[in-house]
Design a protein around this nucleic acid. Structure first.
Ligand SMILES: [Zn+2]
Length: 521
DNA sequence: CGTCTTTGACCTGCGC
DNA sequence: GCGCAGGTCAAAGACG
């Protein structure tokens, strides 16, 4: 039944464009601009004193100008300091990146020495994730190397290529930092991509041998998902992509319907996303991404794509190991604990928990949570990126500039990840918060492995690098839009600008009489 | 008229 | 095998 629409039928349009309309105080200017300001102030001051202003008005003006000059100078000093800090941070990041690259090379060497044979022999079901984790565990938590920006990573990305499709190689080699989720893409599938892409992911492909069937299920049935929880007043989160709605259902325990979107940037793009509001807090929007874009992304979409891809990669390489007993654990328990300000969340249960391995980026709390779950098999959640959320909720708060924010994100991420690496993050079967942190060795091992995975995962670094690059490159223009673009990755949703899909009549739509449209939460 | 949303129907997996 | 639930299809309507 058609429902009265509140907006036009065409939601289309790159929703990232609207951010430009959002005014934002940008206290950061380029040094040259500040200098100009400074010079201007000095000039005016000099001129006014030269004219020998003697009346009170002139004196007032004079002192005001002096104040302005002072404040400008102070500002300039801050800017310089910040710039220095940024330089240092950037250098550190680059160093880190280089070390990672060398590390990758080392791992490559190791793998070519024998890991590949191990991968081929092992694994009961033979999924990519299985093999991957096997390798990790047997070799002291090797980093997932299926991603990256350098060609040197390619050999590793080969790992059990049944799952890992490197459809984006060409694009990736063109300087793009596109990451992750290749394993979920069907772009390189020998089968006709355009047909398969829209075939039901979990549905058995018709007319295939049992083996193929199994493989197919492995490929399509265990897609990694990245779920992003963010406060957002708009119907859908702005991620820079173009989406087309293809379905909607109302869940039992959640009055808010779940909307299904498909990427329409490219006709055959397999990426989909589900959007649903949290029943507990309607202001929280839960967006779940699935798949990898098989096309160049719009400028505004790369950040989010990279982030989600990196997270998904982490997930796939970290814990989804259906066959391995050491990481086998029940679904996350609704426990959540704070340790040293880190919100080790294991409370994903309160959200919808899809059957697929899912990683959740929670941008709703001061401490951003990254929760990694592979329901039925493993569940490990740990802190990922505690951003300065105060800034997010107070856009006018001085951020020390966009670059500052970018690097801050990075440093926060990394520092906390490091902490997570030392502290044994909690894992699933924890009846009490206290025991949450005292896990069985297997869980500890898994958690540790995942934490380590994050800290060493090149894709993760690349993702951050992407974001920072975004900041830096935009920073040259010195416009307020700089922040916007970079913030798209992790922050924008918190600001809640949007244009995209029109406010679906969803919530106001008539309740589905069809049981099929009731989704049990 | 083309594109997009809406929504009932349908398909598949899973648990009992 | 049956029913439930998640997910998708596709016809019909809305919109520019
Ligand atoms: Zn796409």
């Amino acid at each position: 039944m058609p429902v009265a629409k509140s907006e036009g039928g065409k939601n289309a349009g790159h929703d990232h464009l609207d951010i430009n309309s959002t005014p934002r105080s940008c206290l950061k200017y380029s040094s040259s601009k500040l200098l100009q300001v400074s010079e201007t102030s000095s000039t005016s001051k000099a001129s006014s004193s030269a004219t020998g202003c003697s009346n009170p008005t002139d004196l007032n003006l004079n002192s005001r100008e002096e104040e302005q000059l002072e404040s400008t100078r102070a500002e300039m000093g801050e800017v310089r300091e910040e710039n220095e800090r940024l330089k240092t941070l950037l250098a550190a990041i680059m160093e880190d990146y280089k070390s990672l690259q060398s590390r990758i090379r080392n791992v490559t060497q190791q793998q070519t020495d024998g890991l590949l044979s191990l991968g081929g022999a092992g694994a009961d079901t033979g999924t990519g994730a299985d093999v991957h984790v096997e390798e990790e565990q047997d070799h002291d938590h090797l980093v997932s190397l299926r991603l990256g920006t350098t060609s040197t990573t390619k050999p590793q990305t080969k790992n059990s290529d049944d799952n890992i499709k490197e459809i984006d190689n060409d694009e990736m080699n063109e300087g793009s930092l596109r990451l992750g989720l290749q394993q979920t893409s069907a772009g390189s599938d020998p089968d006709t991509p355009s047909k398969r892409l829209f075939r039901r992911q979990n549905h058995t492909t018709p007319k295939r041998s049992d083996d193929e069937d199994e493989v197919s299920r492995q490929i399509h049935g265990k897609k990694a998902r990245v779920s992003v929880r963010a406060r957002c007043d708009t119907p859908t989160m702005i991620d820079g992509c173009q989406w087309r709605k293809y379905g909607q259902k109302i869940s039992k325990g959640n009055p808010c319907p779940r909307a299904y979107y498909r990427c329409t940037v490219a006709p055959a793009c397999p990426v989909r996303k589900q959007v649903q509001r949290c029943s507990d807090d309607m202001s929280i929007l839960i967006t779940t991404y699935e798949g990898t874009h098989n096309h160049p992304l719009p400028m505004g979409a790369t950040a989010m794509a990279s982030t989600t891809a990196a997270a998904a990669t982490m997930l796939m390489s970290g814990s989804s190991n259906p066959g391995h007993p050491s990481v086998e654990a029940p679904i996350a328990t609704p426990n959540s604990a704070l340790l040293n300000g880190l919100n080790f969340n294991s409370g994903l249960r309160q959200y919808y928990q899809p059957p697929n391995p899912t990683i959740t980026l929670d941008l709703t709390s001061p401490t951003t949570i990254l929760s990694q779950t592979a329901p039925r098999y493993t569940s490990t959640n740990f802190n990922y990126s505690p951003m300065a959320m105060d800034h997010l909720h107070h856009p006018n708060t001085p951020w020390n500039g966009h670059l500052g924010l970018g690097t801050q994100i990075y440093s926060n991420m990394m520092s906390n990840v490091m902490i997570a690496n030392q502290i044994q993050p909690p894992t699933a079967p924890a009846p009490t918060p206290a025991s949450t942190f005292l896990q069985k060795s297997s869980d500890q091992k898994n958690s540790y492995k995942i934490a380590k995975e994050i800290t060493t995962n090149p894709s993760f670094h690349s993702s951050i690098k992407d974001a920072i690059t975004s900041f830096v490159s935009n920073g040259n223009s010195g416009s307020g839009a700089n922040q916007q673009h970079a913030n798209q990755m992790l922050l924008r949703s918190s600001f809640g600008h949007s244009t995209t899909p029109k406010p679906s009549s969803s919530s106001s739509s008539p309740v589905d009489k069809d049981r099929d449209h009731i989704i049990k939460n």
